[in-house]
């Protein structure tokens, strides 16, 4: 939103930073597609293209969902994954396998299964998190605690179900539960892209209210924002985005926090139309660039998610210790 009246002063720098980020992202993506390709191009390009598409979708989903969530909750520490959103998604997946049985789950078209899971996810997280966030402002520490408790609860139920499940069915599940940017589920790419597109469309229409929401609940209501409704819409968008990223690569706890914090640091503006694209670029840079360096330069495999989580975890601790928790 451009309620910014000081046009000559700030935006150029924010825009320039965004432009540089965009260019870097593009470069890294081209590098990812071409560096070290010693095979036939008609094999390499589609193979890497699918991988890249998955990474871009996940990066987008994680970055946008984190920033939307932080704006709604008016803090910069909590993220959907810290609040247990992705644990909830995995619980839903487990319950589905448990109730339906792996055979039936394997028979169902994965795209339909995925859509079904997303719907359940939206309904449940909608009820649960709206109850927490739409009302009066609550203390951040309480929310953090609620998130931790929810996360543990969801994970415990999940692991309990997995223990009493048939071992063969467990294999089906396990396959889906570890974060790996390498083995993103290609079947789901198209559906994911459509879902992300729809969520973004919904988000686009309320883009200008996001800047107002960031002023806090009271000020937002004073300025005429229908707070409850807007928060509900945003939480639905977040639920869809988290479902997509979790379905594609599994849970990543601190990745969103990492890119969101970097974006706030880099962009000297409060405007979401600048912060959001910056965070998306940073997320793509992190994963694609990281993958490029690890895979092609060092020859490692699939250690990237660990490194990202490590750095993200450090950021989380730093933020907590620096007392940004008010």
């Amino acid at each position: 939103m451009s309620l910014d009246v000081s046009a000559p002063r700030k935006p150029p720098s924010a825009r320039t930073i965004l432009l540089i980020l965009g260019a870097l992202t593009l470069l890294v993506m081209i590098g990812f597609m071409t560096i070290g390709a010693n095979g036939r191009w008609d094999f390499v390009l589609p193979f890497r293209g699918a991988k890249l598409a998955a990474i871009v979708l996940v990066a987008y989903a994680v970055a946008v969902s984190t920033i939307l969530f932080q704006t709604v909750t008016n803090n910069r520490i909590l993220t959907p994954s810290i609040m247990g959103f992705d644990a909830l998604y995995i619980l839903i997946q487990t319950v589905m396998v448990f109730v339906l049985g792996a055979n039936r789950v394997l028979v169902i078209d994965p795209r339909w299964l995925f859509l079904g899971e997303v719907v359940v996810m939206v309904v449940f997280s909608g009820i649960l998190y709206r109850w927490i966030f739409a009302g009066e402002r609550r203390s951040l520490h309480l929310l953090l605690l609620v998130g931790v408790v929810f996360g543990i609860l969801f994970r415990s139920i999940t692991s309990f179900l997995q223990r009493i499940i048939d071992p063969n069915e467990f294999l089906v599940l396990q396959d889906r539960m570890f974060a790996s940017f390498n083995s993103a589920d290609a079947n789901l790419l198209a559906v994911s892209a459509v879902l992300i597109g729809l969520a973004s469309l919904a988000g686009w229409r309320i883009l200008h209210t996001l800047d107002v929401l960031a002023l806090g609940r009271d000020t937002a209501i004073n300025l005429g924002v229908d707070h409850r409704r807007t928060v509900s819409i945003i939480l639905v968008i977040v639920a869809v985005l988290v479902s997509v990223s979790t379905a594609l690569v599994g849970p990543v706890t601190f990745f969103g926090l990492l890119v969101a914090s970097l974006a706030y640091q880099l962009i000297p503006s409060h405007q979401h139309r600048l912060i959001l694209p910056a965070a998306v670029c940073l997320a793509i840079l992190c994963v694609v660039g990281g993958q490029l360096v690890l895979e092609r330069v060092f020859g490692f495999n699939s250690a990237l998610s660990i490194i990202i989580e490590f750095v993200g975890g450090l950021v989380f601790l730093t933020l907590l210790l620096r007392g940004a928790t008010r």
Binding site: N74, D211, L215
Partner: peptide, 12 residues
């Protein structure tokens, strides 16, 4: 009035 966004007085 707690807020996390970084704003100038004129922005606010």
């Amino acid at each position: 009035n707690h807020m996390t966004a970084r704003l100038t007085v004129r922005d606010l």
